[in-house]
Write a protein that binds this DNA or RNA. Sequence first.
DNA 1: CAGAATCCTCGCAGATACTG
DNA 2: CAGTATCTGCGAGGATTCTG
Lengths: 115, 115
Amino acid sequence: MRAATEHAASVCPVEVTVSIVGGSWKLTIVQKLLAGTRRFGELRRDVGGVTDRVLTRQLRELESDGLVHREVFAQVPPRVEYSLTAEGESLRPLVEMMDEWGRQWTSEHVGGVPA
Amino acid sequence: MRAATEHAASVCPVEVTVSIVGGSWKLTIVQKLLAGTRRFGELRRDVGGVTDRVLTRQLRELESDGLVHREVFAQVPPRVEYSLTAEGESLRPLVEMMDEWGRQWTSEHVGGVPA
DNA sequence: CAGAATCCTCGCAGATACTG
DNA sequence: CAGTATCTGCGAGGATTCTG
């Protein structure tokens, strides 16, 4: 278990969840993966604005937390596919709820309803 | 709107939610407030392990995000009460879901089911 | 294509001390 | 009691460059 998560566990369960999905881009990545398996380059494009280094690290953390499965194809050019594990899939309702809550909050605090 | 939230808004709605509830202790605080109004000292005790400075800042951020209401009583000794706004209350299902997900994840990754 | 290596910075969390 | 003021550090996030 990652150090941050371990510390969170000593506080309270909600903090565990935050420590796992709280990294920047992390839930956005999960959201994309909820739609199906993606290659590294696809994620980089779909997420948008994230650098290789950061995307890689977020994916590795998600992997080590057991939410994401990483499959490497030994071929040239390299091909790596990312998909959600069952545990990752279990985030679906949470992601949907947070997406909805975020839209709601934004619309109430900006006055404009996003598409 | 806070800078972090503003940046998150440019990414995707889920990131907005993360930026609002993602600070350490923040959801734990909300969880306590979901049970009812609390004074500063009560929160400090209930949350446990948090310093004055950090607790204060988290509360101020929650306040500026419109989730928490801060009421100061002009008296000696000072008395300040914190409570959730309607928007804060709207986090209840999310907090419950994250609490449950965190318990589940922890039990599967540690082998021991927490109380 | 999918990253690894390197370097930088900036902000948050935390500790400590003080106060109306 | 409920903070503020000040300092520290640490580590995530980001930019850039290089490679099998």
